[in-house]
Nucleic acid binder design. Structure first.
Lengths: 234, 234
DNA sequence: TAGATTGTTAATCGATTAACAATC
DNA sequence: TAGATTGTTAATCGATTAACAATC
């Protein structure tokens, strides 16, 4: 491959979803002082197969050296580049309730290339409050903070307000939305929505747990560690 | 199909992941007083194609009536059944920091078949605190609350403690773990782990946002609603 | 040169989609 | 019977995996 400009070749969605994991593993390896890593070792750290890892990386270009492996710093830079993390992204959080509070105070964002630049809520008792060093403003001030096309919006409002608030985000120029409300959002073409539904995650776990229980009823309460594995199971 | 016992035929993972969405949409329709719904209408409410919906439902059995559609209440019951939601699942949350607090107070769990029965943290300043009506206990008391194989564990501790705490959950009999730490967990076979990585979600959005920006640089700051769509885009 | 490991190929698997026969 | 809509088939698409030739 021969790509100067990041983002010209298309990368499969499944691969994109794994890039952040690779990036994090590389950060850890770099901090541990590792210079070089093989696909085998990196894959192991992330909990995927090495073939999948190599295939994923091949979509970005070829940054490895045969017989040697990948330069940790170099590969980290390349992936960060592809994820658009050379400069931090601005994030606004709308809905400063329980969850919004937690997200506003979450340290994990800053360390991974995001800057919370605005907190919004129309509740009289929250406006003006300062969370994680940022003051909560009324939604009317959204346009003052959002830089069109360059700000990610996080929706942490109750389901019944999600669509209305989303519309206001979009009107203010937000093109990427992370939705925590258990609601299907309608957005114009060109706006990207991802959904995190916490209850759904539990329901999916419950589905599998129930299968386990009903499949071998008599063993439901017995512990039997067999082999060490990573991630999903049974 | 002819299944009395739920959980005998296997359901594709992609389908399982959508069942909670169908269930929620059905709840909404039921509350709206709807008796019957077509695959077309239900699919529209969830933001998927009707063919996909019908295929998904076909894995559970056939609960529809040709020429008529699905009985809302009946289909709701069937899906709830398959998700193991006839009785509520017990959930313990470990790590009562920012995020753990928010999860402990999150109303969305109870309404979707989960009961938070335990909060755990070893921090001297949190133990004893009451969040959402539940007292925070030290981790040593995990075995007092966990009912082996029947309790879901939510991990909301910092990444560096995630593995250790996970091991303790597993030792106490937890077989389903929802992990909010950006860490790969090693678990014995038979334990099911799902991961929610908030920063990753933002990174995936950032990836697409960057592509949009670099593909048509001149349009990066221009708004152009074209067609109404649901969900993911560009 | 010999050993190691990448990047790619080709086979396989699983998920999506459109179309339609079955049937209410 | 005529109209509507399911459940299923078959084609298509995308993702995973194993194997290995290229190459350091």
């Amino acid at each position: 491959m021969d790509e100067d400009d990041v983002g010209t070749v298309d990368v499969p969605e499944a691969t994109v979803a794994r890039l952040p994991q690779y990036l994090r593993a590389l950060s850890v390896l770099a901090e541990a002082g590792l210079q070089t890593v093989s696909s085998e070792a990196l894959a192991e750290a992330v909990g995927v197969g090495s073939a999948k890892l190599r295939k994923d990386l091949s979509h970005l270009g070829s940054y490895g050296t045969r017989g040697v492996g990948y330069d940790v710093a170099e590969l980290h830079r390349q992936i960060a580049d592809h994820l658009g993390q050379t400069t931090p992204w601005n994030v606004v959080i709308v809905g400063i309730g329980n969850l919004g509070h937690a997200l506003a105070g979450y340290g994990g964002f800053a360390s991974r290339g995001f800057r919370v630049v605005g907190l919004f809520d129309d509740g009289a008792h929250v406006v003006g409050e300062v969370v994680g060093g940022v003051r909560v403003r009324p939604l009317a001030e959204l346009p003052d903070v959002v830089c069109p096309g360059e700000t990610i919006g996080v929706l942490a409002v109750p389901g019944e307000h999600a669509q209305t608030v989303c519309d206001r985000l979009v009107a203010a120029g937000v093109r990427s939305v992370l939705n925590f409300a258990p609601t299907v959002l309608r957005v114009p073409a060109g706006v990207d929505v991802r959904k995190v539904d916490l209850a759904s995650e539990l329901q999916i776990l419950a589905f599998h747990a129930q299968r386990r229980a009903s499949r071998v009823p008599s063993l439901a309460r017995v512990a039997e560690p067999v082999t060490e594995r990573v991630g999903e199971v049974v």
